[in-house]
Design a protein around this nucleic acid. Structure first.
Lengths: 321, 321
DNA sequence: CTGTTAGCGCCTTCAC
DNA sequence: GTGAAGGCGCTAACAG
């Protein structure tokens, strides 16, 4: 492995000069530059980026934490992140946690061990206080409402308002037995949605039915699970807010195998506006995930003060309400 | 930023000793070890992995090249890679190429610049000869049949045989106007499939119809495209091999919006056995993508000689044939 | 314009 | 057990 010193020797110049031509810095005479270039060519010289990074104290690498890489929601966020990373000459290491604290800790450790310059957490399992401790080692941005936080950046959807408007929409369409399906029961996004749900019911003087809340639904297959549960209910919901179009698609498909008609017996509103929603004509709230991913990246490399950026959802009316 | 030398000073020992306790090497007296530990605690010492990596000449990082991260096929490969990477204390940087040569080149460059120790190419656009040149900088494993290659490792499906058995299956079911849908027209996987298709037709004395081959289909939405094309055909295929369950799902959904009945008017066989195939009852060939991902990773960190590992597909009979 | 030199932070051989 | 010293490969301030 030939290094910068070897090249210097071969070209009869100093390492500084070599470094200068590598980095295209000015103040190098044309002849020396060519001598260096020739030497590099001859020796098939390759810069060692690890050394560059050590010397510069940064890695041009950021960490991206997702619970599941193979899920369209996170896939779209990653899409946006990747897009902007390329433009800024960054790369990213993907850390799939499966909502396992140890995996998440690993990402945090990479930050303090200077393997990565910053960290994007698309969904977390650790407490915000734990994460905040690592802020001193590098920029951290999370994908949830952290408006109050003065150290952690955030890019988010106001899920309280989104849920509220979805509920109102269904209410106006005449539905009175509205339930919802989410992924994790914990997590701040779920918290805000639950809050909206309860506030809405109170406001409309509707009863809270525990059996109308379906949790741990992430994928297509989980739709079947939801429908099975509904089938067992004596008092069934007549509309469902589903925090993922793929789950919504799963529910609709499962319904088609039963006597439940959509939307006559069960109205469905999805979230994200994934391709599958368009394909199946699912009424949904579009979330600008790719754009959010782009912002997540831009924020993580920005050195300025903490920022919080809110995004909005857009109702896409189709045939499931 | 406090470093190993500071700790040594604080604990009144040499850097060697500090290094020893950090890496849990033997030959350190209990009292010195504790002194070091205390100093590290007091100063909130954090190892700088970049320095470790420079010193050791490796990064514990591998590169993973995919055309699209947000696609279930690659999502499952990544799933498998991630699983094994964790176990081996490796991380990976994800490089999404969109089948853009420059992006792919970037990954190759990371390898020769020692930013990554090895490279997994899930699907490529560059020529194999180009890639081979980079083998000298680190291990490379690709996800396609490269049995002959003596430097590049591979993990693959015999797409020739898979396609052939799928065609035979359809033939035995009585279909005589079989077409197929693939992603890229180029690429070795496509080549083998095309070969199988042509050989099969010849063997059965069936005519080759250019209009029965549908290319550039990757996603759900592309299914609609295929159906639109079929609708315009006077002589329509009565069965389709579709190299992705999501595309198959898209085709079926699009058919439901037309007068085409599946499988009466058009039989469909998918590939991968994705969740959506199960959900929609699509007959498909299961590809062990997660397992293949695991193998891809194991091969990339293995220092032994070049290996080529073949995997097999399994027919899953459901309702679309 | 160019070269010397001191880092960046850690590992590891070798001698005591 | 322990430490001094050289090395990993590159950058950048400083002196000329």
């Amino acid at each position: 492995m030939t290094n910068i010193r070897d090249i210097a020797r071969m070209a009869n110049v100093s390492v500084t000069t070599v470094s200068r031509v590598i980095n295209e810095h000015p103040y190098v005479s044309e002849e020396k530059r060519e001598a260096v270039l020739r030497a590099m060519e001859r020796a098939d010289y390759q810069v060692n980026m690890t050394a560059v990074h050590l010397s510069q104290g940064k890695s041009q690498l950021i960490g991206v934490v997702v619970p599941f890489a193979n899920h369209p929601y996170f896939g779209l966020l990653i899409e946006g992140i990747a897009k902007k990373a390329v433009e800024s000459n960054y790369h990213f290491v993907l850390i799939q946690t499966n909502y396992n604290k140890e995996r998440e800790q690993e990402a945090l450790d990479m930050l303090r061990h200077k393997q990565i310059d910053g960290l994007i957490i698309c969904s977390r399992i650790s407490g915000l206080d734990t994460i905040t401790k690592y802020r001193q080692y590098g920029k951290i941005v999370i994908c949830e409402n952290a408006k109050g936080n003065r150290t952690i950046d955030s890019v988010y959807i106001d899920h309280y308002q989104s849920f509220l408007s979805a509920l109102k929409y269904l209410y106006e369409k005449g539905y009175r037995n509205i339930g919802y399906s989410i992924g994790r029961e914990t997590g701040s996004n779920s918290y805000f949605r639950q809050q909206a749900y309860r506030d809405f019911l109170k406001q409309k003087d509707l009863p809270y039915q525990e059996s109308f809340v379906f949790t741990e639904n992430y994928n297509l297959e989980d739709g079947q699970k939801v429908v099975n549960l509904i089938q067992q209910l004596f008092h069934k919901p007549d509309a469902l807010l589903v925090t993922s179009d793929v789950v919504a698609a799963g529910i609709i498909t499962a319904c088609n195998h039963t006597n439940l008609r959509v939307p006559e017996d069960l109205a469905i509103i999805g979230f994200d506006n994934q391709p599958i929603a368009k394909m199946m004509g699912i009424t949904t709230f579009e979330i600008p995930l790719v754009t959010m991913g782009e912002k997540l990246f831009q924020q993580v490399i920005r050195t300025t003060s903490t920022a919080h950026q809110q995004f909005h959802v857009t109702l896409i009316e189709r045939n499931t309400v």
